[in-house]
Computed example of a mutant assay.
Amino acid sequence: MKFILINSVLVIFCHLNVMGQIYNYQEDVKTKSIWESTIVKANSSKVFTEIEGPGIIKKLWLTTFPSNDKENIELAKNVIINIYWENSESAAVSVPLADFFCQPLKLQAIENHFFHSTNNQLLFASTIPMPFRKTARLEVKNSLDKEFELFFGIDIESKVIEKDAMYLHTYWQNSIDLSADEPFLILPELNGKGRYLGTHLSLYQRNPFKNWPWYTRPVTIFLDSKSNNQKPSLYIKTLDDFFGSAWWDREDEHNTYTYQYIGRPLVETDKHNNLKIVLYRYHIQEPLWFKESIKIEIGKNWNWGNQKIESGNWTTTSFLYLNEPSNEFNLKGKY
């Protein structure tokens, strides 16, 4: 795209191969939308849709009848969404609803590049592109002792998928009472070929202090290098840098912010001075490609004077594309 100023008038020249995609007719593409509902029994799993390919899931929208705030977040944390590609027996995506849709500690209105919700009433929407060739199977697993009605909307583009198109995968991990001298594994070492897309992180931190010393942890990223005998491909000294910010310890007020690729949509401190915080980052403009392997880890806290950093509950959801429809991951941890 070019910008030229002519007599104080801004003239914009757009390359047709970028902007033309919006209005150019595509002969071999068909749009399909599914709008239905189903009852999900207590303590059971329910496949709510199966889609024949090839195609791309362009939007996924889910909701159910809301209750009070406590019961709403309980449902969102105890219902897992599973997505299977190409009749695989193992789910490529397996994450609690709240964590997948970037509302891991509190249901709230949010908008970023991939996820949005207009209120705090159990509304979840994603626009992450999810290509598949033969079949896509979407399922929810209900761990609650009560049933609920799931309403869902799915928009699909039926089209031939490019040869190098990859499958969406997730890895969910949490650690209760993680001490300051313990590392946290965002993504274990995975052998394969793909692209790391982004991270959701939620933290319940006891006694966070005003200058937030808990965030002085490095992030190491290994791309196509074994973590046990090679230097990391990327080393980011603190979490604020990794999540696209800086100098959290010097902020007068720890406010929320949400942008397309980075955000801090939740910052709350309760009456006992415990912090709830949610962060996200998507690697769109600086993609992380790997041909053989990948691993991402949050390291131990490095020394911060005389402040005693207490333990916290850490949870992350990793999003990545892989060239295979199934992976070696399983849902880890428990609430």
Rank of each mutant, 00 (worst) to 15 (best):
M1V: 11
M1E: 11
L5E: 14
V9W: 00
V11D: 05
V11F: 02
N17F: 01
Q21H: 10
N24R: 15
N24M: 08
Y25S: 13
Q26E: 15
E27C: 08
D28W: 04
E36Y: 12
I39R: 13
I39D: 13
A42V: 08
K46I: 03
K46C: 13
K46F: 05
T49A: 12
I51T: 01
G55A: 07
F65Y: 11
P66L: 06
D69C: 03
E74S: 14
I80N: 04
I81G: 05
S88A: 09
V93A: 09
S94M: 01
A98V: 03
C102P: 00
C102F: 10
K106A: 05
L107A: 08
Q108R: 12
Q108L: 05
I110D: 02
I110P: 06
F115R: 08
F115S: 04
Q121E: 14
L122Y: 06
F124T: 00
S126L: 03
P129V: 08
P129C: 01
P129K: 01
M130E: 06
R133M: 07
T135Q: 12
V140D: 06
L144D: 09
D145Y: 12
D145G: 10
E162S: 15
K163D: 12
Y167P: 04
Y171T: 04
D177M: 11
S179Q: 15
D181F: 14
E182Y: 09
E182V: 00
P183A: 07
I186E: 04
P188L: 06
Y196L: 10
G198Q: 06
G198D: 05
T199M: 08
R206C: 03
P208S: 01
N211A: 11
W212C: 10
W212V: 13
Y215D: 08
T216R: 13
K231V: 00
K231S: 15
Y235P: 02
Y235V: 10
I236C: 02
D241M: 12
F243G: 08
F243T: 05
S245K: 00
D249V: 09
H254K: 15
T256G: 00
Y257N: 14
T258M: 14
Y259G: 15
R264Q: 14
K271C: 00
L275H: 03
R281N: 02
R281L: 05
I284P: 01
E286R: 10
P287T: 10
L288D: 09
W289C: 08
F290K: 03
S293A: 05
S293M: 04
I294W: 01
K300S: 11
W304Q: 13
N306P: 09
I309G: 03
N313W: 10
L320I: 01
Y321H: 07
N327D: 11
N327S: 15
